[in-house]
């Protein structure tokens, strides 16, 4: 998912020409354009080869048909007919969006709080750096390991349940701790909160401290400063974090599979199942659907906040 995000940022973030003023000589203008094209070429080439071409291929294959073990090039709407006509697709899509929304709300709250603490409460820059690095420590291990390590912790005979039992809080182990929506969202929050913290922290650090003093001088309470000064100024950071978290959660398949014990499905798992069964065209059609939904969500977000202007 990050590559898509990058490309979006790339296409939206093309630097505007410096000035519309006409240069004096035509030949000079020509060479300036040439340099621009040349400078853009490597990235354009990489994106074309490794992003645009594969996605185009997926889109093409999504119209093909498949038998048990072979893929037949054709132009057939069958994959989409089945996909859009099946109640399962919509239920699964809804589930995917539900995971994304809940994870987003929790990571945003956590991420904003952590970033606020780091940016405004920790005064010394050394401490700020140290605490920030502390946040990244979990990222030193693979995210699959971080996710799977929850399983023995949350299990029926796991550490969480045995601790609660021994404290007398519960008398029956809690089944919903593992292999449930709870455990899926817990893992998502654990995996992705940092993606919220970093961009929000980054924008908060750029807020001119004199604005906060001004707000305080003007008689604003702490809460009012937060709501009317800090929050609006952190919007670009929140938006970048949101895009990260949403795309990561919507594109996920492995977390849902492991943490729900294969009991829940999201779109990623539908795609994975299709691939496992050699149904590439059907997997492609599902991917295209997921891509469209994700792009729509991001499109709406970008309408709400003009990241380019605010950064």
């Amino acid at each position: 998912m990050p590559p898509e995000t990058l490309s979006l940022a790339g296409s939206a973030g093309t630097p505007p020409l410096a000035r519309p003023a006409a240069p004096r000589r035509a030949s000079w203008r020509g060479s300036r354009h040439l340099t621009g094209w040349l400078l853009a070429a490597p990235l354009a080439l990489v994106l074309a080869l490794f992003l645009v071409a594969p996605i185009a291929m997926i889109a093409v294959v999504s119209f093909w048909t498949a038998t048990e073990f072979s893929i037949v090039p054709a132009f057939s709407l069958e994959n989409y007919q089945f996909l859009l006509g099946s109640g399962v697709t919509w239920r699964v899509l809804l589930n995917t969006v539900k995971y994304a929304a809940i994870t987003w709300a929790i990571t945003l709250t956590l991420g904003f709080t952590v970033a606020y603490f780091l940016a405004f409460h920790v005064r010394s820059q050394a401490w700020q750096t140290a605490l920030f690095l502390l946040c990244t420590i979990p990222f030193w291990t693979s995210n699959i390991i971080r996710m799977i390590s929850w399983i023995p912790f949350l299990g029926r005979e796991g550490i969480a349940n045995s601790a609660l039992l021994s404290w007398g809080v519960i008398d029956q182990p809690l089944d919903w701790l593992l292999f449930s929506d709870f455990s899926v969202i817990l893992a998502f929050v654990h995996l992705y909160t940092l993606f919220m913290v970093v961009p929000i922290f980054n924008t908060m650090m750029r807020i001119d401290r004199r604005l906060l003093e001004a707000a305080s001088d003007a008689g604003a309470s702490g809460l009012q400063t937060l709501r009317h000064v800090v929050l609006p100024l952190t919007r670009p950071g929140i938006m970048i974090g949101t895009i990260f978290v949403l795309t990561l959660v919507m594109g996920d398949f492995i977390t849902v599979r492991f943490m729900s014990g294969s009991q829940s499905a999201n779109v990623g798992r539908l795609i994975q199942n299709d691939i496992g069964l050699l149904q590439y065209p059907s997997a492609s059609a599902t991917s295209v659907l997921l891509l469209i939904v994700t792009l729509m969500v991001i499109g709406v977000l970008l309408r709400l906040v003009d990241i380019r202007k605010e950064l």
């Binding site: 048990e68 589930n95 009991q263 499905a265 199942n273 149904q279």
Partner: peptide
Amino acid sequence: ENQYMVRKWNEFIAA
């Protein structure tokens, strides 16, 4: 009916 079965199985997992 493998293909049909697979689709039904997917529905079961997603149910």
